[in-house]
Amino acid sequence: MALLEVDTLTKSFGDTRVLKGISFDMESGEVLSIIGSSGSGKTTLLRCLNFLETADGGSIKVDGQAVFDAADPSLLSPKAIRHNRTHFGLVFQSFNLFPQYNVLQNLTLAAMMKAKEDTPDFSKRKKEITEELNNRALDLLKRIGLSEKKSNYPCELSGGQQQRVAIARALMLTPRILCFDEPTSALDPELTKEVLRVIKDLKAAGNTMIVVTHEMEFARNASDKVIFMAKGIIEESGTPEELFTSPKSPLLKSFLKQ
C-alpha cells in the first residue's frame, strides 16, 4: 500500500483557484520532486499537506488512514489536526529558526514541549527525557555535520548551515514524510550543494521526502518521481527519465528550455 495518497485536492484563495484537483501517491522511502514555474501552486500544495492551509476539497491518506478529508469535519478539529500533522514535516525556504535559541535548543524545543504533554510523570523523568532528546539532537547534528555548532545561535551560522539545522529540527519529530519548499532558493550555489548533500544522505537513509525545487540537476538525479505542476494541476508526472529526456507536455518542454 502507498504511504501517502493525495486525492483531488483543491484550494482557492477568494476567486483564485490555486489547486485544481491534485492527485498522486508515494511509496515509503521515495523521493518526489515537484517542479514548475512560480505561481503554479507548489507551495500551496505543501502547505495543505502540512495543515498550514485547509484544502477546500479532496483527501489525504497516510498508510491508508484518512488524515484529511474536506468532507469529514471530525478531521478538521484543532485536536485532530495537531495529531495528524505529526505525519508531516516542513522545511521552509527561509529556514525560520528561532533566533533566541541556540542550535541544540532549536532542535529540542518542540520535542520537549511534546514530551511534557505526553508524559504523565514528566516532572519526575525530566532529567532522563532531556538527556534522551539532547542525545538524539546531537546524533542528528553529527549526521548533518554541525556537531561543533551546537551552542551557536542561528545568526552566527551561514544560510546553508541554518537550513541544515532546520532540516534536523524537522527530523527531531520523526515525521513519516518530510517536505521541503525550495530549500535552497535563498542560498548561493556553494551552500546549495551542502544542503542538497544532506537531502541525498537522508534519501540514502530511507526517508520519504517531497522536495519542491528549482534545482533541475537535483530533481533529475536524486528523485524517484517527478511532478511538473502548471496553473494548479499536475501537467505531467513520471520518472525523472520520462520527464527530463522525453517530456510530452508543451508547457513542460518550454519550462525545461529556460
Partner: peptide
C-alpha cells in the same frame, strides 16, 4: 515574521507554547 508562527505550528506546538516559548521574547526585544 509569519514564518516564526508557522515553524512552531508545523512542529506541533500549541498556541500558548508558541507564544510563551518563541514569540514573547522576540516581542520584548
Amino acid at each position: 515574521p509569519k514564518g516564526q508562527y508557522e515553524a512552531c505550528e508545523v512542529l506541533g506546538m500549541s498556541r500558548s507554547q508558541t507564544f510563551f516559548k518563541v514569540i514573547l521574547l522576540q516581542v520584548i526585544r
